[in-house]
Amino acid sequence: MSTDALWYLARGSGVVSLILFTVVVALGIGTRSGRPFAGMNRLVVASVHRSAALLALVFLVIHVVTLLFDPYAQLNLVDVLLPFGSGYRPFWVGLGTLALDLALAVTITSLLRDRIGLRAWKAVHWLAYAMWPIALVHGIGSGTDRSTLWLLAIDAVCVVSVIAVAVSSHPALKATSAPAAPKTLAWRE
C-alpha cells in the first residue's frame, strides 16, 4: 500500500469514527430520559447505541493502526496509549490518544457492566462526555484537513446534533414534549 493510501485511510477512518461516536453520544443522551427517543423504542436506541459504539471503535483501531505505519505521523506504540509524546503535533495528536484511552475505558467497563456494578460503570461512562469533544478537537487541530470546509462542516453538524438531542431530551422539557415517563404517571386514573 502506498503512503498516500495509508494517509487517506487514516484520515477517512478517523472522520467516520468521529461521526459514529457522535451518533453514539446522541443516542446515549437521548436514552437517558427513559422515554422513547425520536420515535424509536428504547430497545432499538439501546441496540444502535451499542452497535454504533463497537463499530466506531473498529474505525478508531483502523485509524490508529494505519497511523503507526505512516511516515509523517511517526507514531509509535507508546504514543498510541500515552498522550502528548508524539513527534508530530504533540498536543493535537495527544488529544487523540487521550480520546482513545477514554474510549477504551468506556467500552471495556460497558462490556463488564454486570461484573463491576452499575455505580462504577456509570462513573466511567460519564467520561464519554469528555471523550467526544476531545476527539472532535483532535480532528480539527491535528489533521491535514484541519482547515478544510468539509471537515468543519461535518464537525458543525456533529456538534449541532448532540446539542439538539441534549436540549430536546432535557428533563426540564419533560412536561411539554412526549408523554411523561412511567414514574410520573402515578396511580391516579
Binding site: P182, K183, L185, A186, W187, E189
Partner: peptide, 13 residues
C-alpha cells in the same frame, strides 16, 4: 419498588 409504590395506593383507593 415501582409496583408497590404505585400499586398499593391504587389498591387502597
Amino acid at each position: 419498588c415501582g409496583p408497590c409504590q404505585f400499586g398499593l395506593p391504587e389498591l387502597a383507593q
